[in-house]
């Protein structure tokens, strides 16, 4: 499983959302096939809600983990 990480700390929503959606769109097939996991690091509180919600509506599985200085959002395939 390939993991791609994005550090979008410092960005504010909706920019963080647009950045995450763009990457999710780019890797949509690999995500669906379960070949890839995208990890976003963000310190924006709004993004912690909007990114997982949007990804879930698109059919992906999202794990949110609070870390020391930011949040880690792990997005992986929903085709189970």
């Amino acid at each position: 499983m390939q993991v791609i990480k994005y550090d979008i700390c410092g960005q504010i929503c909706p920019s963080t959302l647009l950045t995450a959606l763009k990457e999710i769109n780019n890797y949509s097939q690999q995500l669906m096939d379960g070949e890839i996991t995208l990890v976003f690091y963000t310190d924006n509180r709004d993004a912690v809600t909007t990114i997982p919600e949007s990804a879930a509506n698109m059919g992906y599985t999202v794990n949110v983990t609070k870390m020391e200085k930011c949040y880690m959002l792990e997005i992986s395939g929903g085709r189970k």
Partner: peptide, 21 residues
């Protein structure tokens, strides 16, 4: 950045997901 393009692609995925569901 083309936010309209990004969001419409996302909507397409949402629609696909809804159809599967």
């Amino acid at each position: 950045v083309d936010p309209i393009g990004i969001i419409s692609n996302s909507f397409a995925q949402i629609l696909k997901h809804l159809n599967r569901t």
